[in-house]
Structures are given as structure tokens and as C-alpha cells.
């Protein structure tokens, strides 16, 4: 059962991702992106990372996708059906990407140690476990992340607001 679900959503995520990079309409790309994020969230659930799955849905599917859509709306000009074209060097890009994938796949498949099957899962991965870890061992990175988010927020506001001349 888990296997079927896995393949459905893995394929969904990959298909949506290829939709993102091949669609010539940037609005479609943005929606494919949200779909891909949701597919990945299901993979997280299959890996017993419930909390991460929730965060994935909230942050990526919810927030990031919406922000992308807004940015698209703010900057769209010209014909929407040709808003997301490839450049002239796309062939080279495809070559390097496929090469990288081939190398990774070779390493993964020729290595028996990595064909690990899941061991029995008893508990863990809930928000409670994560928060315990975050507030003890990872306290400093946690605080740093909080600072980063604040700074990014302020930076984004300042950048998007723009600087007025003669001030």
C-alpha cells in the first residue's frame, strides 16, 4: 500500500517539477511548483516526518508559491503564453543536468549499502520531538535562524519598497 502511494506521489512530484521547467507559461509553472511541493510533502509523511510534511505544506505550498505568484503578477508584461522561454544554451544545461543525474544514479545503484530498507518506526518526528531537539542541542542555530528570518523580512521590505531619490 505504502509503495503504491509512494510511486503515485513521487511520480507526481517529478512530473510537476518537469512541468515547472518546461512550461512556457510562467503562471502554469508556478502552479506546477505548488503541486510538486505537495507531492514531496506526501513523501515526508511516508518517511514518518509528519511535522516536516506539515511545515512543507504551510511554508512551501502555502507561502512560497503564493509569493511567487504575486511576483509573477507584479512583473508580468507582454504575452503570458510566452512568458517563460528557454534561452539559447538550454541544450548545454540539459546535458550537464542529465550527466549529473547519471552519475548520482550510478553511485546510488551500484552501491549495495544504500539499498537500505526501512526499519521499524516506533515514534519520533512529531512536533514535540523536534521542538525538544531544537531547544536543547540546536538552540544556537535555532536562534540564528530566527534572526535570519527577521533580517530577511526587513531586507525584503526595504528592497521592495525602494529608495526614494533626493532623500
Amino acid at each position: 500500500m505504502g509503495t503504491i502511494v509512494f510511486f503515485i506521489f513521487a511520480i507526481l512530484a517529478i512530473a510537476a517539477a518537469s512541468g515547472v521547467v518546461t512550461s512556457r507559461n510562467i503562471v502554469h509553472s508556478a502552479f506546477y511548483l505548488a503541486l510538486s511541493f505537495s507531492g514531496v510533502a506526501v513523501l515526508y509523511v511516508l518517511m514518518n516526518a509528519d511535522f516536516l510534511a506539515a511545515v512543507q505544506l504551510l511554508v512551501y505550498t502555502g507561502a512560497v508559491s503564493i509569493m511567487v505568484v504575486f511576483a509573477v503578477m507584479l512583473t508580468l508584461r507582454g504575452e503570458v503564453s510566452d512568458s517563460n522561454p528557454e534561452n539559447r544554451k538550454w541544450g548545454w544545461g540539459a546535458f550537464i543536468s542529465v550527466l549529473l543525474f547519471a552519475v548520482i544514479a550510478l553511485v546510488v545503484l551500484t552501491n549495495s549499502d544504500w539499498r537500505v530498507l526501512p526499519s521499524a518506526w516506533t515514534s519520533g518526528g512529531s512536533a514535540e520531538d523536534m521542538s525538544l531537539l531544537l531547544l536543547s542541542q540546536f538552540m544556537i542555530p535555532f536562534e540564528a535562524a530566527a534572526v535570519l528570518l527577521t533580517v530577511a523580512l526587513a531586507g525584503a521590505v526595504i528592497l521592495a519598497k525602494g529608495v526614494k531619490e533626493n532623500q
Partner: peptide
């Protein structure tokens, strides 16, 4: 790799 391709190829 799909993402990488997007970074390389999109305008």
C-alpha cells in the same frame, strides 16, 4: 537535476 536544468535554461 530538473531544478538544475531550470536554473540553466530558463530566461
Amino acid at each position: 537535476c530538473l531544478g538544475l536544468y531550470g536554473v540553466f535554461a530558463k530566461r
